[in-house]
Amino acid sequence: MQVPAPLDAMVQAIRRDADVISARQMGRALAEDLGFSRPDQALVATAISELARNIVVYADHGEIELTTLQQGDRQGIRIIARDHGPGIADLERALCDGFSTGNSLGLGLPGTRRIMDEFDIRSPPGEGVTIIAVKWQLR
């Protein structure tokens, strides 16, 4: 059984393309509520989209969890993408532009890392992939 998410977190189970859209919309709405600029709302939505899409394509199912962070007087959005799929054998390569084991552009992970302020990826053998990414509000 999974560790439950903190109470203020929003979770979207990711199983198919429609869930990617739901997660993305959830993220955009949260970013809007927190007063992120429109371009930043789009960045958050895109990051969620990329991470959720990876879950559908590579892990079959997983979840996206969104939490609001507070640091001093600025707020941020933390995205956690979690799956229990086969994991990523070579994290370093997976973070390189253009590397893909699927038939894609290979921009999902490196692209997400570029558009977020913080990015951490873990894939211990046999435990799927957990990605934590944070976007802070511009001051």
Partner: peptide, 14 residues
């Protein structure tokens, strides 16, 4: 393509 989408695509690396 909306301005926001264009911007995020470029940042992603498209």
């Amino acid at each position: 393509l909306s301005a926001e989408v264009a911007q995020s695509l470029v940042k992603v690396g498209v």
